[in-house]
């Protein structure tokens, strides 16, 4: 399947969803006031762009999500390397990770506001809390699964354990780590919007709450579409990084299809 065909397929399904939305809005099955059509939603977005509140808050939200995602990825990989290098650390951290993973970000935000304030620290903390697990768990599993022959090849060449880790195991694990980062990207966006909704000062999440409380229905829907767009944007960025860092694997899996 060519890329152009895949892209056009994506466009077709997007148009289909929008058309379905518009059909429901026009059918009268739902009150038009609470389920506006696409033109009304676009109009709402246009107004928020004109006042500048959409671009300003969008940049804040994207900036937070991206910073958090990069930090969570680096930290997740670092923890995975530590887990692989030290069975002692691995044991200890496995317990900590299974305790922290189920914690919902919304439950942590109120306390975290007191501890960290309303600045970037809060958002980084919340994103780390939920996004670190994808890269960490995938990384740790992938490092464990590096073929024995590759490690023995390194040992035969007299490489130190650190050199084997960084020159053999880490590159071998990168494709699977990226699968974890892709998942973390989606989760980090949810986390940042939830935190903004609760912390309530700025960002798309804050705007979403304000618009819905003042019953600005088209604007509220427009903001929901913005969060979807953000998800696609972040996924594209992760994919770009994946192509740069593990282009060989993209081509390998592409070639086998």
């Amino acid at each position: 399947m060519t890329r152009a065909l895949l892209w056009s397929r994506g466009a077709v399904s997007l148009i289909f969803v929008l058309a379905l939305w518009q059909a429901v809005a026009l059918s009268g099955a739902v009150p038009a006031k609470f389920f506006p059509g696409i033109p009304a939603i676009i109009d709402g977005a246009r107004q928020m762009i004109a006042t500048g509140e959409l671009p300003r808050n969008e940049i804040l939200t994207l900036g937070r999500a991206l910073t958090g995602l990069v930090l969570a990825s680096v930290a997740g990989i670092a923890l995975a390397l530590l887990s692989d290098a030290s069975p002692f650390f691995d044991r200890g951290f496995r317990t900590i990770s299974s305790l922290l993973q189920p914690v919902p970000p919304a439950a942590v935000v109120p306390m975290a506001i007191f501890a960290l304030g309303l600045g970037i620290k809060l958002y980084i903390f919340i994103i780390l809390l939920v996004s670190i697990w994808g890269p960490y768990l995938n990384g740790a599993a992938a490092l464990r699964a590096v073929p024995r022959e590759q490690i023995l090849t390194g040992r035969m060449l007299g490489l130190s354990p650190a050199a084997i880790m960084f020159r053999i195991k880490l590159p071998a694990a990168m494709p699977q780590i990226f699968a974890g980062i892709r998942y973390a990207a989606a989760v980090s966006l949810i986390a940042v919007v939830v935190a903004e909704m609760l912390a309530g000062r700025d960002g798309i999440g804050f705007l979403l709450v304000r618009k819905s409380f003042s019953i600005r229905i088209p604007e509220t829907y427009a903001l929901m579409f913005v969060t979807m767009f953000n998800g696609v944007l972040l996924a594209l960025l992760v994919n770009l990084a994946r192509r740069v860092l593990t282009g060989w694997h993209v081509r390998q899996t592409g070639a086998s299809k």
């Binding site: 022959e149 590759q150 090849t153 035969m156 593990t246």
Partner: peptide, 21 residues
């Protein structure tokens, strides 16, 4: 420990070569 001057060619070449190189 693995001495210099001694090399091993493993049975499973698909697992011993580095796929990213």
């Amino acid at each position: 420990q693995p001495p210099q001057g001694l090399a091993v060619v493993f049975q499973d070449y698909s697992r011993s070569l580095f796929p990213w190189k």
